[in-house]
């Protein structure tokens, strides 16, 4: 029995070591750094809670936080609704279902740069295809990424396009777990396919909805690359998001303490969402046992 425990710890050791060095240690360091003023070149100076008071009084911090939440609001509902609808369609009686699934899923594996530069090209005001198509149907609008009110929705659309496949896959997995007998019973009761979808499928997929909601919220809260590549945070800072602000403060202005104070705040938000994820996961675990 002793040997078993020893082996257990030995097997865990490689991971445990890396885990301690690359996750736990930086986390603890991060907590400490938030109380210092440090530009990496001179010695760190302990300043107590000053970084946090700067943060709460920094309008740009609140703006970027709001932009991040705004982005979540713009993306997550669509990722839920569209993901569900497409999954239902793909799961219905159609030809080439697998081919379609493959193609819907493919954008998800493309790297962020490919996605964002391609969409940036589509949005281009002077010769972008989107403006051209809109012009053809009588809408003369070329702003997109250059207009503060449409820039974030445009980035959101790109992101939805990019990650929709993930929602679809999760929903398809959920759909496949529903026993066909339930639909057969409903058909006998005279339900049409619309009723079947919204009265049976939607409630039955409760857990999948929660899962897509939580996972896509977590992904959207972490938004950085899309903004970094497509707008750089502009115009007028309308698309600057929290992670980018942390990145700028840390890696452009080298205000390490301040950046880390905001990173801690971000950590708390993610932690709160993570607890929900945690509970979903544990419930799933106990279902199986």
């Amino acid at each position: 029995m002793k040997k078993r425990a020893l082996n257990g710890y030995l097997f865990f050791l490689p991971f445990g070591l890396l885990y301690a060095v690359f996750l736990i240690y930086p986390l603890i360091q991060g907590f400490r750094m938030a109380f210092y003023e440090w530009d990496l070149f001179s010695a760190p100076k302990f300043i107590g809670l000053q970084n946090f008071s700067t943060m709460f009084n920094d309008p740009d911090f609140w703006r970027t936080l709001w932009h991040t939440i705004y982005f979540v609001i713009l993306t997550v509902p669509f990722l839920l609704i569209l993901g569900f609808l497409i999954a239902v369609l793909l799961n219905s009686r159609i030809y080439f279902g697998r081919v379609f699934r493959t193609l819907f899923f493919f954008p998800y594996v493309l790297s962020i740069t490919i996605v964002c530069s391609t969409w940036g090209f589509l949005y281009q005001p002077q010769f972008g295809i989107i403006s051209k198509i809109l012009k053809a149907v009588g809408i003369n609008y070329t702003g997109w990424l250059l207009n503060p009110s449409t820039a974030m929705p445009a980035i959101a659309l790109t992101t939805i396009w990019w990650t929709l496949g993930f929602s679809v896959i999760l929903y398809l997995a959920g759909l496949q777990e529903i026993s066909p007998t339930i639909y057969e019973a409903a058909a006998i009761d005279g339900a049409n396919s619309f009723q079947k979808t919204f009265l049976i499928t939607v409630p039955l997929l409760r857990r999948t909805h929660a899962l897509v909601l939580v996972l896509q919220t977590i992904a959207s809260l972490q938004i950085f690359g899309q903004v970094y590549i497509m707008t750089g945070g502009g115009p007028n800072g309308a698309t600057r998001v929290l992670i980018q602000y942390i990145y700028d403060q840390g890696f452009r202005y080298f205000k390490m303490g301040y950046a880390q104070a905001m990173a801690l705040f971000f950590f708390i938000i993610m932690f709160a969402v993570g607890i929900i994820q945690f509970r979903l996961m544990l419930r799933e675990g106990s279902d199986k046992d």
Binding site: N147, P148, G234, P235, N236, G237, A238
Partner: peptide, 13 residues
Amino acid sequence: LLELCQGVVLGKT
């Protein structure tokens, strides 16, 4: 500077 000037000409400030 960049952001504020954008804000002014875009009517955001």
